[in-house]
Nucleic acid binder design. Structure first.
Lengths: 202, 202
DNA sequence: GTCTATATAAGGATAGAC
DNA sequence: GTCTATCCTTATATAGAC
């Protein structure tokens, strides 16, 4: 479909169809409802993303112990997300996904779980391989941080461009990877052993 | 106001007023519009958050060179956010803010800039003090990552609870700080010098 | 299959009684 | 100041002609 270019939620079907120059009724004819359209357009792209991640994962270089390099695993996770934002319509798709990822309502949640769970578990396994001395729980904590950074970057709120007066631009894929990958890798390494909880301050 | 307990956007004023047991018309009488209500309820709490951050910032311990410890700065930024989620209605407020932070529309953006810009710049200055050898731009990149982790934690998407089968719970404030603070601190330390951009893979 | 016209519902805001 | 009743707009979805 031509108008699969779009990815909006807070936007009406009238906006979508006007921009895509298709008739309002044809959407319901083909998809049945707005939510179904959303699921279709989000899902189709998300599947491509997952495939690319799995491809990069399976191509990971291994050291003599058969372990992947931590940085490579993180890049395999992040690069497909960030590169998708460069494709036509991709930036909107990413922003939409970042927003839907926050929703508590189960509608798109179930869809995301179905699409992403399997590959996310593979990523987590690869992270655990790269960090053989880390407790599994700490891998999850690190992955939580990685998800947060990924989502915020995809959302492109413009906040850091504003604060840095343009010195820092998260829409530049290579510049972003060059910072986030080492940041996250080093962050993971800090989780090797549980730290004592910081003392509450009064 | 009693119904300042809530923090919703995708929710109607009828829902809000029904839950708060106040009359629908009284909201417009007191606030003028739904957006004004949103701005008021979000803003009042956000100001408290900023005040608490500034309080912690000004109380930072300093080493003999007058530099704060990196971990302390990060905690001064994060702790007020996370602790607010334990107050009544605070979790909803946090989730709402996480959502609004993603919106591109300038309406709440301008408000957030007005509320948060000054204290964020102070945090960034403190980070730069704690990391005297880092280029300023790299401090911004690290702050971007910190913002992302904070937002995602506040949003409480439930994703990591699901993936970890409950082993990891970001609503536990102390457990979360015990992971995020060292993760972010070590992440910042990885940004000391610019890395070469990772080679694109095909 | 694609269009116009419309049914139906929901939400924000307000008028006006009390 | 607070309530009820209502206006007006907008949105999804569909019926039915072509």
């Amino acid at each position: 479909m031509l108008f699969a270019e779009h990815g909006f939620d807070a936007v009406s079907m009238r906006d979508i169809t006007a921009l895509a120059k298709v008739n309002l009724a044809s959407v319901n004819y083909h998809f049945g409802s707005k939510r179904a359209l959303l699921a279709e357009v989000v899902g189709s792209r998300a599947h491509l993303l997952v495939e690319e991640r799995l491809r990069l994962l399976s191509a990971l270089r291994r050291d003599k112990n058969g372990r992947p390099k931590l940085e490579d695993v993180i890049e395999a996770f992040l690069r497909p997300s960030l590169e998708m934002s460069r494709q036509p319509g991709g930036a909107d798709h990413m922003r939409l996904r970042a927003r839907l990822g926050v929703e508590r309502v189960g509608e798109s949640k179930a869809q995301f779980e179905q699409i992403f769970d399997a590959s996310n578990e593979k990523i987590i396994d690869a992270l655990a391989e790269a960090l053989p001395d880390h407790p599994r729980a700490e891998i999850y904590w690190g992955f939580h941080c990685l998800l947060g950074i990924q989502n915020y970057t995809m959302a492109n709120s413009g906040r850091i461009q504003h604060l840095s007066r343009g010195a820092c631009d998260p829409t530049d894929v290579e510049a972003t990877l060059a910072r986030i990958v080492p940041f996250v890798a080093n962050g993971f390494r800090a989780l090797k052993r549980k730290r004592a909880a910081p003392r509450p301050r009064r």
